[in-house]
Amino acid sequence: MRITQGCFSFLPDLDDAQISAQVEYCLENEWAIGIEYTDDPHPRNTYWDMWGNPMFDLRDPKGVMMELDDCRKAHGDKYIRINAFDSTRGFETVRMSFIVNRPDTEPRLHMQRTDFEGRSQKYAWDVRG
């Protein structure tokens, strides 16, 4: 099941030139780029692992692409995303985030519906391989 989170996730996967162009846009806005990976794509999983430190003073997307290549070499079978952090006062948050690598076979998000008191229902999702 295709995981859809972050920007561009309903589009076909971006190729390297397209990723590079998006990173260029982020750098133009003076956002810091961070690379993160995980094997648990559950939407509630906010704790992705960081690949190195966020990169604060780059001028050219090539630096990010080098790190991304390294990360793919080490974690090619996991999800990898690129985060762009805006440090402007008032924002101080991630302004853009998109997935740049997916495993060959993506896990499925399974929904579990449970009956509860007074005919109410509880829903839960878990990731299944």
Partner: peptide, 14 residues
């Protein structure tokens, strides 16, 4: 290695 790479990343494009 990380230190050198950090510098190289900053210098990319220049």
């Amino acid at each position: 290695a990380p230190k050198t790479k950090e510098v190289l990343k900053k210098a990319m494009g220049g």
